[in-house]
Nucleic acid binder design. Structure first.
Lengths: 123, 123
DNA sequence: ATGTGTGCAAACAGTTTGCAAGCTT
DNA sequence: AAGCTTGCAAACTGTTTGCACACAT
């Protein structure tokens, strides 16, 4: 079981008020507000154990480093605006992905990533 | 326009007989069969210009380095077996992804990545 | 007291860039 | 001949690990 340390608390607090998934570097920057001497290695180690224990989930973004978000949200995907670069959550995946796979292959997990233009960049 | 060099030919040849998308490192290994002193920097530079000129496409795999495959294939996605690690192509994307996005957001492109178990690892 | 967690620096992996020499056009 | 291309090494970014010390339990 994970210990309750100042740095771990700082990292979890960094997610408050952030609705988009955060990268390790972003977390380091944010969490240093609560734990000044926090190091990047600690962030990686904490993220790894928090994912292992189910407190966070890794958001795997194609062609970019993983980001992290609190778990407990229900199943969703992400949408990246190519205008402003922001990543939004997309609720409700009602896709029948199993039928895409060649016969005999069992689909156990999937990642869907959408790219486009968000409302405020649409102009 | 790209010049026709031994190294570039070697890299393109490396795709023959490979049905799965290849990583830069894999390409280096394979292409050295045709061009012994080939360096990794040349592979990256060649890949970049081949993508720019439309001969290859980058396959963006969540949480892993990009892979490359010849262009001209029609729209498809990928399936990674967590047993053997091989990446298979999945034909025919008939998903209505547009409806997933929040109203006002325009979906222009998508990536779908499936994970599971392939036929020979299913045992 | 025990042993996990931390910070720092060094080690690594993947990718990019500078430069002199080589090859394509 | 002109200039793109190459190989090598060095630089960089993101991530991991070794180690002595600090801290949670």
């Amino acid at each position: 079981m994970q210990r309750n340390t100042r740095q771990r608390r700082a990292i979890l607090r960094a997610f408050d008020g952030n609705s988009t998934p955060l990268s390790p570097q972003e977390l380091l920057r944010e969490a240093r507000a609560y734990s000044r001497r926090l190091g990047i290695a600690t962030v990686y180690r904490a993220l790894k154990s928090m994912v292992r224990e189910g407190h966070l989930v890794a958001v795997k973004i194609p062609g970019a480093p993983d980001r992290y978000e609190p778990s407990g949200k229900h199943h969703h995907h992400h949408f990246e605006c190519r205008g402003c670069g922001r990543v939004f959550e997309v609720e409700g995946c009602r896709l029948n992905l199993g039928r895409l796979a060649p016969k005999g292959m069992r689909v156990e997990r999937h990642e869907v990533f959408l790219y486009g233009t968000c409302t405020s960049c649409a102009g």
